[in-house]
Computed example of a mutant assay.
Amino acid sequence: MGCGCNKNRQQYEVVTADGRIAYTTPSKPAADAVAKRYQGATVREKGKPQTAQTTGDPR
């Protein structure tokens, strides 16, 4: 039976401005530090989809 150490552990991804995932870590401070090295990079929780923002009339 395999280890369940990372089963419920939150992961963070550093996503560059062009949409490439540059780094994945369980540490939010480490992800923030790495994101500072890439211009326009963002930190998001792994596995959560990014929602598109809508503008105008939703019809």
Results as ranks from 00 to 15, higher is better:
M1Y: 04
M1K: 10
M1Q: 01
G2A: 06
G2L: 04
G2V: 00
C3W: 02
G4K: 02
G4I: 03
G4E: 06
N6L: 08
N6A: 15
N6R: 12
N6F: 09
N6E: 09
K7H: 05
K7G: 00
N8C: 04
R9P: 07
R9Q: 14
R9V: 14
Q11L: 14
Y12L: 02
Y12F: 05
Y12N: 07
E13C: 09
E13L: 01
E13G: 06
E13Q: 08
V14D: 06
V14Y: 08
V14A: 10
V15H: 01
V15M: 09
V15F: 04
T16G: 13
T16I: 08
T16Y: 04
A17K: 13
A17V: 14
A17R: 15
G19P: 07
R20K: 09
I21S: 14
A22F: 11
Y23F: 15
T25C: 10
T25A: 10
T25R: 00
P26S: 11
P26A: 13
P26C: 07
P26V: 14
P26Q: 01
P26F: 13
S27D: 10
K28Q: 12
K28V: 05
K28N: 09
P29T: 01
A30R: 10
A30N: 12
A31Q: 05
A31S: 06
A31N: 02
D32H: 08
A33C: 03
A33N: 01
A33G: 05
V34S: 07
V34N: 11
A35C: 01
A35R: 00
A35V: 03
A35I: 00
A35T: 04
R37C: 10
R37A: 14
Y38F: 14
Q39A: 15
Q39W: 15
Q39K: 15
G40D: 12
G40V: 09
G40S: 14
T42Q: 09
T42K: 12
T42S: 12
T42L: 01
T42I: 12
V43A: 03
V43D: 06
R44G: 07
E45S: 15
K46N: 11
G47R: 00
G47I: 03
G47E: 09
K48V: 06
K48H: 08
P49R: 07
P49I: 03
Q50P: 13
Q50C: 04
Q50N: 12
T51W: 08
T51E: 08
T51A: 14
A52N: 03
A52P: 00
A52K: 07
A52M: 02
A52E: 02
A52S: 10
Q53F: 01
Q53M: 01
T54I: 02
T54N: 01
T55A: 15
T55C: 11
T55M: 12
G56V: 11
D57K: 08
D57Q: 14
P58N: 11
R59P: 00
R59Q: 05
